[in-house]
């Protein structure tokens, strides 16, 4: 196990941001931390790397409780894309090269050429999209065994977004693990192998994508079922957790929407239909 988060809780200025968050990440796995804005995804990432002190819970990295020494095996792309104000891309290259023992300079140089970065330009003067891409380039060049990417495809244009997804997949295929926070549910299946749905600081559901699809079904409103638990509504359909062979297998985004939407008043009707 590369990362295990157990019962992580965090309060900020009296507000409960995380409440007993638990999930795990295997070697070579890409785990998508999915949730709406303000769900607690960024706080989770900050607590994992100890940029923010957790109140309760455990973060186990590479089989041991968090220790600063493991930070050379972890690279982060933060959500705010904050960079050192006077640092050029070349300064960043030197900094990361010095900090990460497994730094891959050849990859970084190719990346810089491919995306036409000026190494002598201050990174702060890049557009937000360029900065996102540059920070991703640093993380992918770090050789770190675990990447924590906070909304890595946000601010990127569609072509580059596809290329980034390809690079993420490539990085995972090398045996590395990635935790990717995102609220872009439609692109998740392109890179994630597992996911955790987080809302209001709580993990609603976590599983591998394949297993999650096996365990859920989509039924039409009014359609009856024998066994299972109603998870939530997706427009005129209902997401059901069941091993019964009813309805259709869901897509990942339907599972996510079902969990995030939850049970609404309309579902009471559907539940009643269960008895028919």
């Amino acid at each position: 196990m590369v990362l295990e988060v157990k019962n992580l809780s965090k309060q900020i200025r009296g507000k409960q941001i995380l409440s007993n968050v638990s999930f795990s990440l295997e070697k070579g796995e890409v785990l998508a931390l999915i949730g709406p804005n303000g769900a607690g995804k960024t706080t989770t990432i900050k607590c994992i790397i100890n940029a923010l002190k957790k109140d309760e819970g455990e973060v186990i990295l590479f089989g041991k409780p968090f220790a600063n020494e493991v930070k050379t095996r972890i690279a982060v792309v933060p959500e705010d894309r904050k960079v050192f104000r006077n640092f050029t891309a070349a300064d960043y290259q030197r900094l990361w090269q010095g900090l990460y023992p497994a730094w891959n300079d050849a990859f970084f140089r190719d990346f810089v050429v491919r995306y036409n970065f000026n190494l002598n330009q201050k990174v702060e003067s890049y557009s937000i999209g360029q900065r996102t891409l540059f920070l991703l380039g640093l993380a992918l060049s770090s050789g770190a065994e675990l990447l924590l990417l906070d909304e890595p495809t946000q601010h990127l244009d569609p072509t580059i977004r596809n290329e980034v997804i390809h690079l993420i997949n490539q990085y995972a295929r090398l045996g590395n693990s990635l935790l990717v926070s995102s609220h872009e549910i439609f692109e998740l299946e392109e890179y994630a192998t597992a996911f955790a749905i987080i809302k209001n600081g709580k993990v609603l559901y976590t599983d591998s994508i394949d297993d999650a699809k096996q365990k859920h079904r989509i039924i039409r409103r009014g359609e009856s079922f024998k066994e299972g638990v109603v998870v939530g509504m997706i427009h005129d359909e209902i997401l059901l957790k069941t091993y019964d062979d009813v309805g259709m297998y869901p897509k990942l985004n339907q599972i996510v929407v079902g969990y995030l939407q939850g049970k609404s008043a309309d579902l009471i009707l559907a539940k009643d239909l269960n008895l028919n």
Partner: peptide, 15 residues
């Protein structure tokens, strides 16, 4: 609040 950028890198507060 610019210290967070340092904690994301392999630096500890002690260091």
């Amino acid at each position: 609040r610019r210290d967070e950028a340092l904690y994301f890198l392999p630096f500890s507060r002690k260091e």
